[in-house]
């Protein structure tokens, strides 16, 4: 546990000395608010709900999370620090979890900085606090899975730009695959599978204010799977 905590702290230090991390957070906050107030038209819709704000989260995560995870393993390989890391008396899963928790802490700070949106709009109407809570839970779970996917991509790459592009591409596909039916006519069973696989489809319930066990399970399961495969890859490198 102490080793895990030390690893997490190290990751946090790296993140908070990296300009792309601050740029990514700033971009996320600004873009989400711009979308909500000007494109979605919060005031024009005259509805006391943050659904529109959170509806933009999955697509914004496609750009923001890869910016946070691209350094993960790719940078370690490029600088050669991975050699040192892999020789430390730490298990592969500890290394993976340490990086994951470090990045997740940054994501949580970013999500926390969206609270003023809700807080400042409260006097305007009767917002459903239960729904907003569910929306935040969904955002944390979605970004948790996206971070695990980003680190999973990063472990295969040796430079940051490849890691960024790969993670963004994977997240984009997993986000939009559930909406494939709007551009392609596919048989219903395929669409059902695509909807199940999509990160966005499972997020819908949270945006409505409902915590669906299947959606919760899906995010936790996919996160665990990605972290597991990442640790396997790391272990294979270590053994090689």
């Amino acid at each position: 546990m102490t080793r895990l905590l030390a690893l997490t702290k190290k990751e946090l230090r790296i993140h908070f000395s990296s300009p792309p991390v601050f740029l990514a957070i700033g971009f996320f906050l600004s873009a989400a608010a711009l979308w909500f107030f000007f494109i979605y038209g919060f005031l024009a819709r005259d509805t006391a709900s943050l659904r529109g704000y959170f509806a933009a989260v999955p697509i914004l995560m496609v750009l923001v999370i890869p910016a946070l995870t691209m350094k993960g393993w790719a940078e370690e390989y490029r600088l050669g620090t991975s050699e040192l890391l892999l020789t430390l008396p730490l298990r592969s899963w500890e290394l993976v979890l340490g990086k994951y928790l470090g990045t997740m802490t940054v994501v949580l700070v970013m999500v926390l900085l969206t609270v003023p949106v809700a807080f400042l709009l409260m006097p305007l109407g009767e917002f459903d606090l239960g729904q907003i809570t569910a929306e935040y839970i969904g955002t944390v779970l979605l970004s948790g899975t996206a971070v695990a996917l980003g680190l999973f991509v990063s472990v295969w790459c040796t430079n940051q730009s490849t890691a960024f592009t790969g993670a963004a591409g994977l997240l984009l596909v997993l986000t939009l695959i559930g909406r494939l039916d709007s551009v392609l006519s596919l048989p219903a069973p395929f669409l059902a599978v695509f909807r199940y696989v999509s990160l966005d489809t499972h997020f819908d319930g949270f945006v409505r204010g409902v915590l669906d066990v299947r959606a919760l399970w899906y995010y936790v399961w996919l996160t665990a799977l990605c972290l597991y495969v990442t640790s396997l890859v790391l272990e294979a490198r270590r053994r090689a």
Binding site: F16, P19, V21, F22, L23, I25, G26, F27, L29, S30, A33, L34, F37, F42, L43, L113, T114, P116, V117, L120, L121, P123, L124
Partner: peptide, 21 residues
């Protein structure tokens, strides 16, 4: 109130994050 919320969330907080960084 909406204008204030827009300024705070679109400009002030992101700018604060960038400045802090």
């Amino acid at each position: 109130v909406v204008r204030f919320a827009q300024w705070v969330n679109i400009v002030v907080i992101p700018a604060f994050v960038l400045l802090f960084g």
